[in-house]
């Protein structure tokens, strides 16, 4: 089953030329299943591009009402606990971004009507950088950032 998929994928990659090279190099990950998964946003190499494709705009206003809880110094970049919380009204989605990662956008959370704007997870960070939280309310974007110093690289595993 997986083998068959891989075969199709390989064929597809070769046919797609440069895209195929990118897939082979692991720069692009094959998205086989989810139509809703925003491939362009998650593979964007910088924050504005990612925001543009994820939320339709990269004009995020800095807002201190967004609270980011993350360690000042992360001993292990592979596991950095991050909590994003805000008391703003009408939050539709929250995105977590590690600025210096190869693909900065790490996660986006679409909140249902009953959800409280609070999410907590653990992320990988390639090196010391800002952790940026972007909150979408209505049509507007707000962001806040917190620097996390990483002493051991995350992406090397």
């Amino acid at each position: 089953m997986i083998d068959a998929k891989r075969r199709i994928l390989l064929k597809g990659s070769l046919a797609a030329g440069t895209v195929g090279v990118a897939v082979g190099a692991g720069l692009l990950s094959p998205s086989l299943v989810l139509a809703s998964w925003n491939e362009a946003a998650f593979q964007a190499k910088d924050l504005p591009t990612a925001l543009q494709s994820l939320m339709g705009s990269d004009a995020a206003e800095t807002n201190d009402a967004i609270k980011i809880k993350a360690p000042d110094i992360a001993e292990n970049g592979a596991v950095v606990p991050v909590t994003v919380e805000t008391d703003m009204e009408g939050v539709k989605s929250i995105a977590i971004v590690a600025d210096a990662n190869q693909t900065p956008l790490i996660a986006s959370f679409d909140l249902g009507d009953s959800a409280v704007p609070f999410v907590s997870t653990r992320i990988k960070m390639a090196k010391t950088s800002n952790v940026v939280a972007v909150v979408q309310t209505g049509d507007k974007l707000y962001s806040n950032a917190k620097e996390v110093k990483v002493t051991i690289g995350g992406c090397g595993g």
Binding site: S29, A78, A98, S108, G112, F118, V119, T121, R122, K124
Partner: peptide
């Protein structure tokens, strides 16, 4: 549906997720 999370490979191994709802 209370929440939908979209992730990249940037989330740590054996992912932890917490959220709240009313």
């Amino acid at each position: 549906v209370v929440m939908t999370a979209n992730w990249s490979g940037g989330v740590s191994k054996n992912p932890y997720l917490a959220f709240k709802f009313k």
